[in-house]
Design a binder for these strands. Structure first.
Lengths: 149, 149
DNA sequence: GCTTGACTTCAAGTCCGCTTGAGGTTGTAG
DNA sequence: CTACAACCTCAAGCGGACTTGAAGTCAAGC
């Protein structure tokens, strides 16, 4: 098996990561990834950048902005492959966000299902529907109230 | 308890829903909500619009675009409070999306945790890291390969 | 040596989901 | 009647995440 070079050009990184070259350059401007240059001024990425890009995409799927991801990646080495400890630290920081987002979605799903199931849609006690009704507790009665039944 | 009027002005809807008036007007241009007008050309929303707006925000939390939400809401009555059957239909359409997104996130979390736990981060079998490595199966060997160990 | 494709920079454009501002009208409290 | 808050429209602006285009350079095959 040929050992592929440690320094890969942007096109290869794009093909492997599924991220366009323009997006990769954009990530560079945002400090998410970094590349050295060959004598002809073309970008050469260390192999582990592929991992970093995969991480960025994963983080986006979780709903993080590029700024947040940049913050998370700030603790990761740019010049060498991250050690297990680097990843572990990052994951520890991430895990709560993931968990929070998952429980948020689960709550939403369960409330929605519960509402349909129990027919509570017109009741002010329905948490899904009243969730954003910030004035609902002001004692004057909810606007949702009287369309019961 | 005073029964509040059926037609509420935009400021009240904004306060109750936690959505700015400009966003509400924007939603109207996108066909997400509708209002009648009073003699002075000011918007008057039926009470149940509050519910509709809550639904829109919930949908956004799930990761749907306003266009998709508009599509989902297209089956809902604009001129009357939705019946239980209307909501049930909508929820049936929604539920799979919610479930899919939840399992996606759970998978991501478990893979991430699993990677850290098992130390597989440098192995090509790691699904989290290799997920976007679209060329990984082309037989030439993964760029991720040789930084094992 | 030439062609072709991958690469370079930089500026501008696009889509989404709003927000802001100008300039004017309506509604309500004193 | 007046003041002032809340409303109106329309146009432009903004932040995020890129994409597209122009104009030029570099690298590899024939």
């Amino acid at each position: 098996m040929p050992v592929l070079p440690d320094q890969i050009p942007i096109g290869v990184l794009a093909a492997r990561s599924g991220v366009s070259t323009s997006a990769l350059r954009f990530y560079e401007t945002r400090g998410l990834i970094a590349a050295s240059r060959n004598p002809g001024n073309q970008r050469r990425y260390p192999r582990f950048t592929l991992r970093r890009v995969a991480f960025i995409r994963a983080a986006q799927r979780v709903g993080l902005s590029l700024d947040e991801i940049a913050g998370a990646l700030a603790g990761m080495p740019v010049d060498r492959a991250p050690a297990k400890a680097d990843w572990a630290r990052l994951t520890r920081a991430w895990r709560p966000r993931l968990d929070a987002r998952i429980t948020d979605l689960e709550k939403l799903r369960d409330e929605l299902t519960g509402c349909i199931g129990c027919g509570c849609l017109s009741l002010r006690t329905c948490r899904l529907i009243n969730r954003d009704d910030v004035a609902a507790a002001d004692g004057a009665g909810s606007y949702l109230q009287s369309d019961r039944g």
